[in-house]
Computed example of a mutant assay.
Amino acid sequence: MAFRKFTIYDFKRFAMLVLNFMFGNGKCCVCGNSTFNGKICISCSKKLYDEAENSHCEKCRICGKSLISEEEICMSCREERILKNSDKVVPVFPYRLWAKTLLFEWKMQNQRNLSLLFAEICNSVIKKRISENIFIVPVPPRPGKIRSRGWDQIEELSEILKVKFGYKVLKLLERTEKNQQKKLDRKKRLSSKGKIYTESKLLKRLSSENSLPEQVLLIDDVLTTGVTVESCCEILKNAGISKVDVLSLFVVD
């Protein structure tokens, strides 16, 4: 299987992220204390690592959300199962309180110095709860996003995982719909299933050559209804990939 070689652009991009992370200054977006390593202080960074690695609460075996009084499967999946093609879903943080602030700063306020922190946390979670030897498939950005904003958070996260930690990244999916999912209510999100994503040229080629990996890890920033993840997993499974695990930085529970 052929992979794109590292380019000077890859290393320059990574170096800029590191410098931005190390020499940025301001206040921590979690606790408000002064920080000289980006938008989050060392103390809060440590708390994030600890929470990511020591989350022992029971999880739904289908969607990965925390169970309250249920056993094995949460009420949402019992009432209306959305995720049918994912083999395992691993959310890192619940989407509440400080987590909302972090995601907003990263995704909407273009605080790209958080990308390195999130990549390091993802790497730790992948090693502990999934597998080091796995192909990463990023959920693709909507058309025109990178051109208009200059970057995409999942694209950048995947690049850091590739350059710093050595993961193989396969861009097997493309997004066809320009509308933002976050602006749709649950009913409209569910009705959009299967209409947003499609196979990339790389996926079509690897499928025709019978050289697809048996297992991949789909990465996204936040799991809300599960429609995005299910749409992507269904495409990957239909193309011939046997096992599709999912890593989501945040989960709305």
Rank of each mutant, 00 (worst) to 15 (best):
F3V: 15
R4G: 10
F6D: 11
I8P: 08
F11A: 11
F11V: 12
R13M: 11
L17I: 13
G24S: 08
G24T: 15
G26W: 01
V30K: 05
V30T: 12
S34V: 15
T35H: 09
N37V: 11
G38Q: 10
K39C: 09
K39I: 14
C44N: 00
L48R: 00
E51R: 15
A52D: 03
C60N: 02
M75E: 12
I82L: 12
L83E: 08
N85W: 12
V90D: 09
P91M: 02
F93Q: 05
P94D: 13
Y95M: 10
A99L: 03
K100N: 05
L103T: 01
E105M: 13
Q111M: 08
L116W: 01
L116R: 15
F118V: 07
F118C: 04
A119L: 03
I121R: 08
S124K: 15
S124G: 04
S131N: 13
I134V: 06
I134H: 02
V137Y: 03
P138Y: 06
P140R: 00
K145Y: 02
I146N: 04
D152T: 06
I154C: 01
E155H: 12
E156S: 05
L157I: 02
L157N: 00
I160M: 01
L161I: 04
F165T: 11
F165A: 08
L172P: 00
L173I: 06
E174F: 00
R175N: 05
R175I: 09
E177T: 12
N179M: 09
K183M: 08
K188T: 13
R189Q: 00
S192Y: 04
K195L: 14
K195A: 09
E199G: 10
S200E: 04
S200T: 03
K201W: 02
K204A: 05
R205G: 09
R205K: 13
L206N: 14
E209Q: 13
Q215C: 06
I219V: 07
D220A: 06
D221W: 00
D221L: 04
L223T: 03
L223P: 02
T224S: 04
T228F: 09
V229L: 09
K237Q: 01
N238Q: 07
G240I: 05
D245S: 13
L247K: 07
S248W: 02
F250E: 02
